[in-house]
Design a protein around this nucleic acid. Sequence first.
RNA 1: GGAGGGAUCGCAUAGUGGUCUAGUGCGGCCGCCUGCUAAGCGGUUACCCUGAGUAAUCGGGGUCAUGGGUUCGAAUCCCAUUCCCUCCGCCA
Length: 419
Amino acid sequence: MLDLKLIREKPEVVRESLARRREFAPLDEILALDESRRKVLAETEAFRARRNEVSKQIGKSGQKPRELIAEMRSVGDSIKSLEEEISSIESQLTDLTLRIPNILDPSVPDGEDASDNKLVRVGLDPRDLGFTPKPHWELGEALGIIDFERGVKISGSRFYLLKGMGARLQRALIHFMLELHICEHGYREIYPPFMVKKECMVGSGNLPKFADNLYHDAEEDFWFVPTAEVPLTNLHRDEILEPGTLPLYYVAFTACFRREKMAAGKDTRGMKRGHQFDKVEMYKFVTPETSDGELEKMVDNAEDVCRRLGLPYRVIQLCSADIGFASKKSYDLEMWAPGSDEWLEVSSCSNCGDFQARRANVRYRPSADAKVQFPHTLNGSGLALPRVFIAILENYQQADGSIVIPEVLRPFMKAEVIA
RNA sequence: GGAGGGAUCGCAUAGUGGUCUAGUGCGGCCGCCUGCUAAGCGGUUACCCUGAGUAAUCGGGGUCAUGGGUUCGAAUCCCAUUCCCUCCGCCA
């Protein structure tokens, strides 16, 4: 959520950012509501001050002066009706404000859509396999490690199941990624709930605007996490972090649930885009001055996974029109999948500035006598599993259809090849 | 799911309709004192909104789990919700 004062004092900054995102938000309406809220609030508080003063008098005197009590009764009525007015204004105001995306970082390139994203670097070049590579859905089914048909039988379209060495590969990847981030990159492991309260979704920025991509229980206030970013953002909700606490680095493995209401076709073939997928997520709470550098470090932590797995990848900076709602600056990591013949997004690393911290009301005290401030939050996949799974199958496939297991995974797999 | 108990300033507690500007102890912070000790003395101790001011700051309002209600006035009375504890039931 943006600071209302920023909208009030520098609406042009907000407008410019919105225009770059190719988005619209009713700023004039927000400003008008804000002004009337403050006006009505001033009136209410004047009445309250009067009531406090008189009540104290009555209390001290021990008398029951009729006139004053009569006056206070009408003052009470006025307060009540003004309060109703304020709460109605406030609910409109917050509803509108919560739908405004974050202000873009100046370094974000301008663009109309995803095709304007900027290539930052190629980490590892795709290599020639020396034969025509097969897509993972063919490889996986032939090896008996991915079962699309039974996934659909059990849960419907966009579900699959992993079997034998497939399931083991998935588990090995999770283990490998967690260990890397914990032991070498300094993150602390968190195992969070996979279902959260509505407020958490508001805190992370998924609600109110993106309800149609979320699963939730109809009877209880349980929302299925679309990413571990949601529970991690809310880990310190309504807290004030003591001096010396920052930076905080967290890493969590969760399943992720998304409705992904898009038509079936090339974009959803195989295990690329299911309703449920596994992901290891990195998350940071940092001081504002350090967040730019922390984003670069986080991207490097994600790249490290790609490097160690020996998978071709590149780093993209998202342009103004493609960047996420809560983010002010984002990089995506894409892995090359030779069988599917495309670059697959395996990570998105974002600096959200104080946007999520405001929503989730996470604050910190820079030093013992300093005023509280909002920290900056960053999130990044490290990495999203199914697409890494795909990349391993398609890049490590042999002419005979077997898969050589990347060296770093062998200790977890207790095997060198899937055949 | 059923029955009962509880929720107060970082922690522990006091407070059962107006003097609560929420007291006290511990802890924290700032001084002072003491040639030693987890010693003593004094002060201080949250957050949000809003108005004035360049600012330090000052004024007003709000917050005793949350939301409603009763009342001139609510930490205190009433109702609902949430969470925690105890017991019963069920259950990996």
